[in-house]
């Protein structure tokens, strides 16, 4: 029974930035999704669609000033948005851990790697001194960093980009968290390293049973990894489905566009990619209609008359008034 209870239950999350003298920006607008124990869930969308802000809101890492957060973030039944700060600190790093996009800037340049690993163990597992260092070396070895004892004494600039991201993953997994949030963990890395890091993440979540929220702008990365995919556009979820169904039959024109811009292994060499026309900054406000309308080839008149609702059927959710049909998917 408990395994079907969600570990993380994000309900109607919204985040609004208000800046003095500037316009208010609703970066996340009524986002809901759940993550069950051990499940891997992906948030996908172009840059600026609100993925990072969503993850920071879940972690309670948004700046305290000029930000309004609404909705609920239930973890194990506790609402993280209203939890006292010290309780939240106990959960962060121990039960929920996070891996960020840029491994260089996410590591402290003047503190040895070893200290940056052991500090998590000291904080949450009461491991100190030699014991903590041994555990840290084990962690580094586990994420595939060779010669871990020596690496512990080194500084971030002495490691390659891929090794840095491995080190960050080691820190995140130090306390065997039940949920790992990875925000574009491979975007800053070389293409050859990207696949290795994804493979590592996949292996680790399988071994530890941790649930994973993988955030990416690249559906190609999701392909071999996630159970459920939520596609975000301009702060809202526009389509959610199981990974297989989504890849086999995208219904939202935006999802179709994202899939059309992914290089496919089964496509003939040199087959053209179809990037989505227009830019993600070219949006309509959701209260006026569908934000994707300015770029959408399926647009009908109703699309700009009011916000399309998110409708659920057959295990899918879809926010579109004129979705793709089977024949269109192919051309997308």
């Amino acid at each position: 029974m408990t395994s079907t209870e969600p570990l993380l239950d994000v309900r109607d999350l919204s985040v609004t930035f208000t800046r003095k003298g500037g316009p208010t920006v609703r970066a996340v607008d009524g986002v809901s999704f759940t993550v069950r124990p051990g499940e891997t869930v992906s948030l996908v969308g172009e840059s600026g669609s609100g993925k990072s802000v969503t993850s920071l809101a879940v972690m309670g890492l948004l700046p305290r000033r000029g930000v309004q957060v609404g909705g609920q973030v239930l973890f194990d039944g506790d609402d993280l948005l209203t939890l006292p700060r010290d309780r939240l600190r106990d959960i962060r790093g121990r039960d929920i851990a996070m891996v960020f996009q840029d491994p260089m800037s996410s590591l402290n340049p003047v503190v040895p790697i070893g200290v940056q690993v052991t500090e998590v163990l000291e904080r949450h597992q009461d491991l100190h001194g030699e014991k903590a260092r041994a555990a840290a070396a084990d962690l580094l070895a586990r994420v595939g960093i060779p010669d871990p004892t020596r690496r512990l004494k080194e500084y971030p600039h002495q490691l390659s980009g891929g090794m840095r991201q491995r080190a960050l993953i080691a820190m995140a997994l130090a306390c065997q968290p039940r949920l790992l949030i990875a925000d574009e963990p491979t975007t800053a890395l070389d293409v050859t390293i990207q696949a290795q890091i994804i493979e590592l993440l996949k292996e680790l979540v399988q071994d530890t049973g941790a649930a994973l929220v993988l955030i990416t702008h690249d559906l190609g990365i999701v392909a071999g990894l996630c159970d459920t995919v939520h596609v975000m556009y301009s702060g809202r979820v526009v389509e959610s489905a199981g990974r297989r169904e989504l890849f086999a039959r995208p219904r939202h024109p935006y999802t179709g566009g994202l899939l059309g811009s992914v290089p496919r292994l089964d496509a003939p060499r040199g087959a053209p990619l179809h990037p989505i026309p227009g830019s993600p900054t070219d949006v309509l406000r959701w209260d006026r209609g569908c934000a994707f309308a300015p770029r959408c080839q399926n647009r009908v008149d109703a699309c700009t008359e009011g916000p399309p609702p998110l409708e659920s059927y057959a295990g899918r959710s879809l926010r579109c008034l004129n979705p793709l049909t089977e024949s269109e998917e192919v051309s997308a």
Partner: peptide, 14 residues
């Protein structure tokens, strides 16, 4: 505002 301070916060450090 540096990323590594955010990382430290994400670790739940005091």
């Amino acid at each position: 505002h540096e990323d590594y301070v955010r990382t430290a916060e994400a670790k739940g450090l005091w």
